[in-house]
Every structure is written in structure tokens, then in C-alpha cells.
């Protein structure tokens, strides 16, 4: 649909929030805990913080939770009964306060979960998520969305994008039918579009590189000393993958409790040494350098080659959270 622009006053945002709560929606919004800000389940508007560049954790868990039941079972000597988890009713979720990079990440996630074999659990969750994003008016040294075809006011993946104006009120860009429905239901809160332009209220984020150029460069960089050099300090944990809004590698694990149990899809990370270890003891990605290469190539070469969309939205979370200060931007710009 054609984007519709409206103005929404600051106090009306709270009314909109309360409307959603009143309608039984589960809201995930940025909430401060100590010095960090997390996407968390929020029921009171007062808990929502506006003081964040991006949250520490990404919003992917609303569609790809860290532990997802794919089925449960009951077993006896005679029979095994499988109970399909996809028959569950998944919650109506509102993602409130996502940044344009968070919203953009749903595109590559969706590509992965629907390539050849549609994952109906992922899709059922996705259908029930309403994405209400807020443009970025400031950024930090870790942000690089503009290098990967994103931007601080990018509308991709959002249902409505709010941009804070100099008056303290917000421009509301209604991007999808889902977003339009919310506006229709709350017509009185939305006013005619403001005069003030959106662009002057957005953060300036330097374009450090061009995704297409990096993609071309990476075609011939499989064997290169840069992978070992840039990953030397890597500790081999999974924090980069787990805070990443796009990373979707997973493990499948069974948990039994007597004759009943579940099969779970759990987050996993290519940074772990055992991720690709064969039963024989052979490991195709033996070193941390090989694992770091996989992470970069997967995001900046393999994914865009397959689907035209990179596996990185430039949110910088992985670099901010890395306990060894491995910086993805530093690696990519050094190529």
C-alpha cells in the first residue's frame, strides 16, 4: 500500500500503548535495567524508555524465540503420539520501539525461514507481530545501517514508523495494512501530517562501505589472512550471534520427562568450536578464524547472493556486546 503520513502528539502515544494493552496484546518494548536497555515484556507505558540507541538484545525472539517447542510427545510401549506445536495459538505481539534496523532484520529472517521449506511456526508467530518502530535521532560509533542499504528512518519491515519531530510530537508513517488498521481503530489520536520534514530529524550515520562492493570483493577472499588476524582475540562464545537480529542458526534438542517430552529448536552459533564438529572428530571449521570467516561470508556474501538481501542490518549489536571487542565494521572495512 501507499504510505500514509500522520501526526501523533506525544501524549497520544501513551494512549495508543494503552489501547494495545487493553486489547490483550503482549508488548515488547525497550526497558532499562541498570546501564543496559533490553526489549522486554512491558505492561506499563512508564516502563518504556526512550533513551537508547538500540537495545542490547535484538527483537528476533518475537518470531524466533531462543527456545521454541516444535512438538511434544507421549510415549508408551505400544505407541508414540506426536502433538504438533504449530497447532498452538501464538500470542498477539506488538513490538514497540524497534529501530529501523530491527524492523529491516525481519526481511532476511523471513527469507531464511521460508526458503524452500516454509517454517510454519515462524510464520504463525510473524503474522501476529505488529511492528511499531521509532526512527533514530542519534547513533554511535557502532552503527552502520547506511552501509547495508538501511537508514535511520528506513521504513522496511515496520508497520508504522514514528519519527520524533522538533516539537516533541511524532510523524507517523503508516506502511502496511496492519498499521493502517491500528490507525483506523484509533482515528482520534492521529492528525493530518505535519509540515516538518522527517529527514532533518534523523541521525547522521556515515556510510563506511557499500554492501554490493563488499559482496563482490568477498567472492575471492575465502583464503585470506584477515580472518585469523581479525578474530585473534575472539573467545569463541555466541554473544554476537545471540544479540544479532538476523542470525538464525539453531540446534534441535529433545527433552524427556518420563514418557513425555518435547523437541526444541534452540539458538546456536557458528562461533562455537563444536558447531560443525563431526562424529569422527573431524571439524571442517577447525579454527576461530574459519568460524569468523563463516560469519562474515554468510552475512555479506552467501545471503545476498541467494536472496539479494544481506544478513546484516548494521545495528552494531555484535560489536557492542563482544566481550573481546571484535568489531564487525572493523573487519568489513579492512577487507
Amino acid at each position: 500500500m501507499q504510505t500514509e503520513n500522520h501526526l501523533i502528539r506525544k501524549p497520544s502515544l501513551e494512549k495508543l500503548f494503552n489501547y494495545l494493552i487493553g486489547n490483550g496484546k503482549t508488548i515488547y518494548a525497550p526497558k532499562a535495567k541498570g546501564k543496559l536497555v533490553f526489549f522486554d515484556n512491558v505492561t506499563d507505558f512508564g516502563e518504556v524508555t526512550e533513551d537508547y540507541i538500540v537495545t542490547t538484545n535484538s527483537a528476533k525472539s518475537v518470531v524466533f524465540p531462543r527456545t521454541e517447542k516444535v512438538f511434544s510427545y507421549k510415549k508408551s510401549k505400544e505407541s508414540t503420539e506426536i502433538i504438533d506445536a504449530a497447532d498452538n495459538t501464538y500470542p498477539d505481539v506488538v513490538l514497540w520501539g524497534s529501530r529501523p534496523c530491527d524492523a529491516a532484520a525481519f526481511i532476511p529472517l523471513n527469507n531464511t525461514f521460508n526458503e524452500d521449506y516454509p517454517d510454519i511456526i515462524f510464520n504463525k508467530r510473524s503474522q501476529k507481530v505488529l511492528v511499531l518502530s521509532f526512527s533514530c535521532s542519534y547513533s554511535d560509533d557502532y552503527c552502520f545501517c547506511t552501509s547495508v542499504n538501511g537508514g535511520p528512518g528506513n521504513t522496511t519491515g515496520s508497520d508504522i514508523l514514528f519519527t520524533r519531530l522538533s516539537t516533541g510530537d511524532y510523524l507517523a508513517e503508516v506502511i502496511t495494512e496492519k498499521g493502517k488498521l491500528l490507525v483506523t481503530e484509533n482515528n482520534s489520536l492521529f492528525e493530518p501530517k505535519p509540515e516538518e520534514s522527517k529527514e532533518q530529524n534523523l541521525a547522521l550515520i556515515k556510510a563506511y562501505f557499500n554492501q554490493e562492493e563488499i559482496q563482490t570483493k568477498l567472492q575471492n577472499l575465502f583464503e585470506n589472512p584477515v580472518w585469523d588476524e581479525k578474530s585473534r582475540a575472539c573467545l569463541g562464545c555466541g554473544s554476537c550471534a545471540y544479540v544479532c537480529p538476523v542470525c538464525s542458526c539453531f540446534d534441535i534438542q529433545d527433552e524427556a520427562h518420563g514418557h513425555k517430552g518435547t523437541r526444541l529448536r534452540c539458538w546456536d552459533s557458528c562461533g562455537f568450536g563444536l558447531f560443525t564438529l563431526h562424529t569422527s572428530g573431524h571439524n571442517p571449521r577447525e579454527t576461530q578464524g574459519a568460524r569468523w570467516r563463516q560469519r562474515i561470508l554468510h552475512k555479506f556474501l552467501y545471503m545476498p547472493n541467494k536472496t539479494k538481501v544481506a544478513g546484516c542490518v548494521g545495528c552494531g549489536r555484535c560489536s557492542r556486546s563482544c566481550p573481546a571487542d571484535i568489531n564487525i565494521l572493523d573487519t568489513v572495512t579492512s577487507l
Binding site: N57, R66, C237, G238, Y242, S269, G273, P323
Partner: peptide, 24 residues
């Protein structure tokens, strides 16, 4: 509750040097 088992705690610890942790 927020722990998502990235094992950064283990990876950063000089004394968690086992090549195969109990959890694996």
C-alpha cells in the same frame, strides 16, 4: 532469566579452559 546461553561467561573465564565443557 535473560541468560540465552551464549556462554560468554565461560569463554571469557581463564579457568574455563576445558576443550569440551560438561554442558556439551
Amino acid at each position: 532469566e535473560p541468560c540465552f546461553k551464549c556462554y560468554a561467561c565461560r569463554a571469557a573465564c581463564p579457568l574455563c579452559y576445558c576443550t569440551r565443557c560438561t554442558v556439551e
